[in-house]
């Protein structure tokens, strides 16, 4: 005889939506605060009540979320849900957009990254970012990777710089493929190789956090598998936040998953739970393909 008793039906189920007629008001009504634990014991970055406005339009509504040390966090959600906007707040990439206004508290190791005294260039060295489309500099493979360490003065000699370049390329699993043509242009590599070059460029400055904004959406499955392998590897030493449209990718690479919808953080939880038994109906609908 089982001792299990059925829990009461959650009220969120009333907000079940259909593919034919997504009712935004009903979806918003079903959102009564983030489901799941947004805080972790050892947070690397900690965000509290983050609002983002583009002019008068609000893109992010009161999002609170921690990124733990050596944790891979996947951010998923439909197009326009604010996941990329939120990611870009984490190293102030939104500063470049004039009408963009970020409020709330965002800290890295407890320090406010939006403080007046914060050196943004230094911040972006500590919190690196990899974009959707590989964007190597029109320079040699070597110079692409050496660029960051040079401007941040991380290498005192040519041999130290050589070491950094080799180590970064090795960690990005690219070294074996490019070691004989380091003086060739980075733009001559294949798409997947270019993306790994960009990751090598990012890790060359020893960041503490790596942000990835759909890093595999322009890549074929083999290149994608290599990047995912790399994320597994890097996740041991870095804090990684990855925005992805591929739910299978989020399920494969992340420790925790955050589901964004209409600028709200709807649910955050351990990836295994999110993909087998999500709590919020909106999360369930999205990951099972129940609205477009």
């Amino acid at each position: 005889m089982s001792t299990y008793t059925a829990p009461p039906t959650p009220s969120t189920e009333s907000a079940a939506t259909t593919a034919e007629a997504p009712d935004l008001d009903a979806q918003l009504a079903s959102f009564t605060g983030t489901v799941g634990d947004v805080r972790v014991a050892d947070a690397k970055m900690s965000m509290t009540d983050v609002d983002v406005h583009y002019g008068t339009a609000q893109a992010i509504h009161g999002v609170s979320l921690d990124l733990g040390k050596n944790e891979v966090m996947a951010m998923i959600g439909p197009s326009g849900c604010g996941k990329s906007t939120f990611l870009r707040c984490l190293n102030r990439m939104n500063d470049t957009i004039e009408i963009c206004n970020v409020s709330g508290s965002l800290t890295l190791d407890g320090e406010d990254i939006y403080d007046r005294s914060q050196d943004v260039v230094l911040l972006r060295a500590r919190v690196g970012i990899v974009f959707q489309k590989p964007n190597p500099f029109p320079k040699t493979i070597y110079d692409n990777v050496a660029y960051g360490p040079r401007i941040h003065g991380l290498a005192s000699s040519k041999s130290t710089l050589d070491d950094i370049v080799e180590q970064s390329l090795r960690r990005a699993s690219l070294w074996e493929e490019v070691k004989d043509r380091l003086d060739k242009p980075g733009t001559g590599l294949s798409g997947g190789q270019q993306q790994r070059l960009c990751i090598a460029r990012t890790i060359a400055v020893s960041p503490e956090v790596i942000l990835m904004d759909e890093p595999c959406s322009a890549l074929d499955p083999i290149a994608t598998a290599k990047i995912e392998e790399l994320i597994d590897e890097l996740g041991k030493n870095y804090t990684i936040a990855i925005v992805t449209h591929s739910m299978q990718q989020a399920a494969r690479v992340s420790d925790r998953t955050a589901y964004f919808h209409l600028g709200r953080l709807v649910e955050v939880g351990v990836t295994n739970d999110i993909f087998t038994n999500p709590t919020h109906q909106l999360t369930e609908n999205y990951i099972t393909g129940r609205f477009g």
């Binding site: 005889m1 089982s2 001792t3 299990y4 059925a6 829990p7 087998t276 038994n277």
Partner: peptide, 21 residues
């Protein structure tokens, strides 16, 4: 019956019964 509970609530209740029952 146990699979039905798993399906609807995502909760695995197998092998949870007590010996005395």
């Amino acid at each position: 019956c146990e699979y039905v509970v798993y399906l609807v609530h995502g909760k695995d209740i197998r092998h949870t019964q007590s010996r005395s029952e």
